[in-house]
């Protein structure tokens, strides 16, 4: 049965520094920001100050479509945190722009029993401003609604 997404009362949130900040704050503008090399034009993740492929230092975060596919997933059934009752779906999403770039996230608004590798998903963000911590926007994923047709998808890419 599909589990309707509700925002949990608490999450463990990162304290990003340096190159990682853009990834965790892009959601403020509703954008998934992924590092890209301006020399070879390949994306890579997690962010780093050089392109691991061509070693160019000319790298920076760019917005991507936020769409992708389930590269793999696991239904977690062990309670680790009281505010995240199982079951829930932990997912690796391969980016539409470049499938070998994968985002570690949670897949919500979905029946855990129905998730399949290859499913189309899209990003949305959860804003957290923990007391004494760092303000972040966590990228979560949900299934692409079936009403969205291919033309709309490619149109948003451009």
């Amino acid at each position: 049965m599909a589990q309707t997404y509700t925002r949990p009362d608490f999450r463990l949130t990162p304290t990003p520094e340096g190159d990682d900040v853009v990834f965790w704050t892009g959601g403020e503008d509703d954008r998934l920001m992924i590092h890209r090399c301006r020399s070879c034009e390949q994306y890579f993740h997690p962010p780093a100050p050089a392109c691991f492929r061509c070693r160019s230092r000319d790298v920076a975060s760019e917005p991507v479509s936020g769409r992708g596919r389930v590269a793999t997933f696991t239904v977690n059934r062990q309670p680790w945190l009281p505010t995240l009752p199982p079951p829930y779906v932990i997912v690796l999403v391969e980016l539409e722009e470049q499938p070998d770039v994968r985002i570690f996230s949670q897949l919500v608004d979905v029946d855990p029993a129905e998730v399949r590798i290859g499913d189309e998903v899209e990003v949305f963000f959860e804003h957290w401003a923990p007391e004494g911590g760092t303000e972040v926007w966590l990228p979560l994923f949900r299934p692409v609604p079936p009403s969205v047709d291919a033309a709309t998808v490619s149109g948003e890419d451009a």
Binding site: L12, P46, T72, N76, W80, L81, I90
Partner: peptide, 30 residues
């Protein structure tokens, strides 16, 4: 505070190597 190796995973409820390694396991099975 999250240690660096968990900063990318723990926010999404993946607090254990069981979660991290279940992912490649599912893909291998698939």
């Amino acid at each position: 505070k999250l240690p660096p190796h968990m900063a990318w995973t723990a926010p999404f409820g993946a607090l254990s190597p069981a979660n991290w390694l279940a992912l490649p396991a599912q893909r291998y099975m698939h």
